[in-house]
Amino acid sequence: MLEIKCPYCGKRSQNEFSYGGDGNIKRPPLGEEINTKDWDDFVYFRDNPRGKHTELWHHASGCRQWFKASRDTATHEIFATCKMNEDFNV
């Protein structure tokens, strides 16, 4: 069983969590003219790296909070997790 450390609840089973996508995506700035390619990149296109990846996860069956996780997509090792307003301390 894979365990994920929720920044609020501590280590819990992966069954309690939902994957929430790439954690590196930045929304185009508000109030500016955005070209179609930038919108496409933001909405549709994602990198699919092999190795260390920053992701969003949701503790859906627990405290229902979103958080960031640094995970290896090849080995599934989770290096660190942190709250959304924090940076990884690794």
Partner: peptide, 19 residues
């Protein structure tokens, strides 16, 4: 439930959201 119910993790007057 996948929750860890061992005594050092969950004791009386504790609560947990899980499945």
């Amino acid at each position: 439930s996948p929750f860890n119910f061992n005594q050092d993790n969950f004791s009386v007057n504790n609560s947990a959201n899980t499945s």
